[in-house]
Write a protein that binds this DNA or RNA. Structure first.
Length: 348
DNA sequence: AATAAGGACAACCGCTCTCTA
DNA sequence: TTAGAGAGCGGTTGTCCTTAT
């Protein structure tokens, strides 16, 4: 029980942050960066512990945060990623630019989870045909939603169930394939690259909050403050994604074309999934899930098959923060809805 | 109009991981 | 090698707001 060491050194305030406290923290970090979080409260003149400052900055004060309701694409992506990653909120949030792990977690617990249960939607957690091989070393699952998948509980690993001569012992660029004891080819994706040295974009995932002096001004109009009680929120629309290097997927490539595409079951998209139509070759370790590589500006053209839209609509329609997509975007079979349609209809 | 119930979300707690001396 | 500090993460709680009665 007890508080953190930094909290024991001084009397600290707890609970909701006041606008004055937010202003102090924003001013300090925008000028000096956070550096060591434990020293931030003292230097910023706050009666808070460093951990509280860090949480407040990362979850609510970062200038790149996207506020407001989750879009249909985001909800679909969260469901899909949760089926793969489980409660790895931080990893899921990495695929949702401008969203925090806390936000994703709250959204899941307050909205999606209930809907999935009530609609008996077959996520990986509820798949009746999901197999556990019973091996205590490697927790394998096969997912009937995509019979090409065997998912391991070990993160970021996808296993192709059928040994393919073309893949055995193959080492192709960023993809490293290994034979396992289970007759499956393990596709191990490389860790993210270091941030690009020439990037002038503010990227909180790299710097964890540091921004050079002068780049962030809380009074700038694109960083709109709205006040809800004692809590201020940003609703800025400038989104800059992390510059992650991941395998290049090429449908013409006999290797990469075989790699599972989790989002394909829900949403069709281009190079890096449903959001992005750019030609970037930076991709996500989870293959085709949107990761917003450098040079990709959100939002992009999005094409979502109508049947999936109805599917999501059914899940989410009872949510108080959700306005029916189908009711606002009349679609017939075979039609597609664009990203702008979705945002105008859902983020209200 | 008052109050209870439920939902949404901000914040905290405690554990684990990583780094460094 | 190890201990301590800092940071990150997921689970949980607390608070405020909305809705129903």
């Amino acid at each position: 029980m007890g508080h953190h060491s930094c909290c024991n050194k001084q009397k600290v305030k707890r609970g909701l942050w006041s606008p004055e406290e937010d202003e102090k923290l924003i001013n300090y970090i925008s000028n000096y960066g956070h550096g060591c979080w434990s020293s931030v409260p003292k230097l910023a003149g706050l009666q808070r512990c460093g951990k509280s400052c860090r949480l407040r900055w990362i979850n609510y004060l970062r200038p790149d945060l996207k506020r407001g309701s989750f879009s249909l694409q985001e909800a679909a992506l969260i469901i899909e990623l949760h089926g793969i990653l489980g409660n790895k909120w931080a990893q899921i949030a990495k695929h949702l630019p401008g969203r925090t792990d806390n936000e994703v977690k709250n959204f899941w617990n307050s909205s999606i989870k209930k809907k999935l249960i009530s609609h008996d939607v077959p996520t990986i957690a509820t798949y009746p045909d999901m197999h556990y091989n019973g091996n205590n070393e490697e927790d394998f699952f096969s997912l009937n939603a995509n019979p090409n998948w065997i998912l391991s509980s070990q993160q970021d690993q996808l296993y192709l169930p059928t040994p393919t001569p073309m893949l055995q012992g193959f080492d192709h660029g960023d993809l490293k394939l290994e034979q396992t004891n289970y007759g499956a080819n393990s596709v191990q994706f490389p860790p993210p690259m270091a941030p690009p040295s020439n990037s002038s974009s503010y990227d909180p995932l790299w710097s964890l909050g540091y921004q050079p002096h002068g780049q962030f001004d809380p009074n700038q109009e694109h960083q709109n403050f709205s006040t809800s009680g004692a809590t201020q929120h940003y609703s800025g629309d400038k989104l800059i994604g992390p510059s992650i290097s991941a395998p290049h997927y090429d449908d013409e490539d006999p290797l990469t074309s075989m790699i599972p595409k989790p989002c394909d079951e829900i949403i069709s998209g281009n190079c890096c999934g449903m959001f992005c139509s750019c030609a970037s070759q930076d991709h996500d370790p989870l293959a085709r899930l949107p990761y917003f590589p450098a040079g990709c500006n959100y939002p992009h053209d999005t094409q979502v098959p109508n049947n999936h839209m109805e599917y999501m609509d059914a899940i989410m329609s009872s949510s108080s923060s959700y306005s029916s997509v189908s009711s606002l975007s009349p679609l017939s079979s075979g039609q597609f809805v664009t990203n702008s349609n979705l945002h105008s209809s859902w983020e209200t």
